[in-house]
Design a protein around this nucleic acid. Structure first.
Lengths: 332, 332
DNA sequence: TTGAAAGCGATACCAC
DNA sequence: GTGGTATCGCTTTCAA
């Protein structure tokens, strides 16, 4: 059995209150008894019991991170940052992966709540008003990231709309006139009750950009990735400079794979551009043109905002990160 | 404030003991009062308080995962598997990243201990006997993975030694006669007090393989990656089929990048082989020849063994996964 | 079938 | 400065 403050108290023939004072550097204790107690703690190999403390204090020093998965996008680096910063402040991380399954998200949140976490970082999958209300009623600070919920929850993301608009401009400046946009089927996902905030922002940016330059938007949305790309290539004569702007890098990389299979030369016949600047790009050829932003900064922001909310429940902030267009060999 | 069992008890004018029986499907309660209590719980929007329960039961239903990072190798997929399986059994995951820094590992373990986790999955960085003893004294089941500690801790890994030996044979069968081995500086890491178990196993496998076929082993170990590769290329006339066998895929991929910069053709001038079959390989060209194993199976094994240990502290198992040689375009 | 009370380990307040 | 004790929310045992 592990030693408790009671053991120390008995060992020193003293009360638990005093032991607590010594162990937690509280005032109102003589140096002499303090020293005696600390020595006893050493001898008995005392380690504080976090569960007992949590119950007494009503704080668990734990934050829940509810994320889609660890295998895609910028998530690993982001969680890395969050973990490090949380640790600095004495907090631990409960990791919950939803795989974009709403019921897993709902269950996860509910368990986090039972476990009295002090705050939650949430990549929302759900979006219904009922769900939003239930989150509000939890009385736990929640910061959303990637997908937005509504103005009652602080949000951290990239300025996607503007970024995609700039991406279109970038392609235009490189002489591309036909610019298609590759995205998952947003309407379908919406129908499934999924949160499509970021998907929508990026799409809107693309559409706005095309509109601004009087270009005809072509959104490849329906069907599997292969079907979209087949449609894209259909009747394609490569007689005008053609580019494929993709929702995200992992999508772009898959597209490159498939186009290569169909003997399409990149960038000679089709230029490709992604979004996110994921680390794996370093090793992928041709070097993908993309849109980059600081994942570290994003992680810092989300955790710092969460800490703010924990101190002050009224705190609200929407934090949109800056981005940079990164050119690459996937464009000509 | 959230409702507690006491609130329910008062609401129903009944004792907390009975409420507990109803809420936890314990025996010795009439259907009628049980129904009344469950309804009250619904009305009062009762959610159990995990902290209180943990304190009373002495179990937190939490396991700590102490891992290097999330950005390399097979870690994301592994943690994904572990998280899913833990969740199935009602357990939560504390994620701690050490970045291969021993003091972070030590601190992490010690905090996990304060938080009374029921078990730990550990990618060990440390290896000293003092450290091992301190882990033993924790009285918490620990399963090691990737790096081994000693026979007091269950271990899950791949049969690295045999795999690397087979890799050598594979290269030999393809006609390679000069086979160099690329690895981090093991001696140096050892001197830093780091656990080099897997590094060493793989190296030994390579050496054994070379010895078996009477080939001269050439281990590229000292200096930066660039320095090692410069040394490797030095005086290289490409007059005999040359291959570079690498500790792991991410290492191999970096090597390919650098060799390309030095205008070395792969696989024409140098064949490359990696280890781990990481997911990113799908999008990297040339397709890297590598050694694959089931990360899912590894995750299942480690968590199942941990659960066994939690039931039975005497339980011990060393689980070595099978592997497959995967050929690729990085060899000719 | 139900109630009462003693823990679990730590905190916090009040009294001396 | 120190001791005593109620409290946090839940479990568990014993008695009724």
């Amino acid at each position: 059995m592990r030693a408790t403050i009671k053991d120390i108290a008995e060992y020193c023939k003293i009360s638990v209150g005093t032991v607590d004072r010594a162990l937690n550097n509280r005032s109102g204790i003589s140096e002499k008894t303090k020293k005696k107690i600390l020595e006893a703690a050493e001898i008995l190999n005392y380690h504080p019991n976090h569960t007992g403390r949590s119950l007494a204090k009503g704080r668990t020093m734990t934050i829940g991170v509810v994320c889609f998965d660890l295998c895609n996008n910028f998530f690993p680096e982001l969680i890395d940052t969050i973990e490090a910063r949380a640790k600095e402040k004495g907090f631990f991380i409960y990791l919950i992966l939803t795989h974009r399954d709403f019921s897993l998200e709902e269950d996860g949140i509910s368990y986090l709540c039972e476990r009295q976490v002090d705050g939650i970082i949430l990549f929302p999958v759900g979006l219904s008003q009922t769900y939003i209300n239930s989150l509000k009623n939890l009385g736990i600070p929640i910061v959303t990231i990637y997908n937005r919920l509504d103005e009652s929850f602080p949000f951290v993301g990239v300025n996607d709309r503007s970024a995609m608009e700039d991406a279109v401009e970038h392609l235009l400046n490189k002489g591309y006139r036909r610019i298609s946009y590759l995205t998952p089927d947003i309407a379908y996902q919406r129908k499934q009750g999924l949160n499509t905030y970021t998907l929508q922002q990026r799409l809107t940016g693309y559409q706005k950009g095309m509109q601004r330059f009087n270009l005809k938007a072509e959104v490849l949305e329906a069907g599997s990735l292969e079907e979209k790309l087949d449609y894209f290539l259909e009747g394609q004569k490569f007689d005008e400079k053609t580019a494929l702007l993709c929702l995200c890098d992992s999508y772009a990389v898959k597209a490159i794979e498939y186009l290569r299979k169909r003997n399409v030369c990149i960038p000679e016949q089709v230029g490709i551009m992604g979004y996110d600047n994921i680390q794996a790009l370093e090793y992928i050829h041709p070097r993908l043109a993309t849109i980059g932003y600081s994942v570290r900064q994003m992680g810092q922001a989300v955790i710092d905002i969460l800490f703010e909310c924990m101190d002050n429940p009224e705190y609200f902030r929407e934090y949109l990160l800056d981005y940079t267009i990164i050119d690459g060999d996937s464009l000509i």
